[in-house]
Amino acid sequence: MKDVKTPPSAEGRGDTVSRRSLLGAALAAVTLAPGITLYAGPAAAAADGAKRWGLLIDTTRCDSGCSACVTACGAEHGWSDAGRARPDQAPQWVRKVDVRDPATGRTASLPIMCQHCAKPPCVDVCPTGASFKRADGIVLVDRHICIGCRYCMMACPYKARSFVHEPVTGQRPGSPRGMGTVEACNLCVTRVDAGGRPVCVDACAGAGRSAILFGDLDDPGSAISRRIREVAPARIRDDLRLDTGVYYQGI
């Protein structure tokens, strides 16, 4: 019996995508067994190695009274559960942080989520390769092979990841999450693959602030690249040289 194509190896994933799109173009349908087609049509390989998705957050438009991005993320991915007995075990895909400079008294408020590093420490330390970076720069947890060792949480400088401490039911269809595995901001990868933007970007605009800009950092002509050239934003813990994909203006 012809077997289903084996999954691509972790190392070769980047170029597998382009190979697959070539194949998909040549053969609109791959015959698996008599009468069975693997692809009904050419499937879009969404993780594009020519792109690097990122965010630019204008902290001058953000303030500590607003948490629209956090609320929207919790609703979109089904992780918000206020009023739990142990807030220290609460899931935290994105959080609002207030920063104050004791020397000048200047304050800023900003959301911190996975910074989608180009050189992510969580990916380096993950023993099974469950922590990985997609071709387009989005850092994800493959929870099918996450064993729940939490070493990535030890390694992340941003405390961006949380561990699911209890059984979960009623997950959102596009956002699987389960007990014993680690989770974090996935840059709304399902929306992005469908050509959309992360939900926090829309929520921030909906709250009348439009402080979050999403786009392709590798495209010099994109709105986000132009703004980054213009305003010279900072990145959190840039001294670690992790080349994060989330920029902050005004800190």
Binding site: A10, C126, P127, T128, G129, I145, C146, I147, R150, M179
Partner: peptide, 19 residues
């Protein structure tokens, strides 16, 4: 978190990981 996936730890290796 998932001790039932010990076989995963034995079959999937990320050689950059000290673990």
């Amino acid at each position: 978190g998932r001790p039932d996936r010990l076989t995963v730890a034995m079959t999937h290796f990320n050689f950059r990981s000290i673990f």
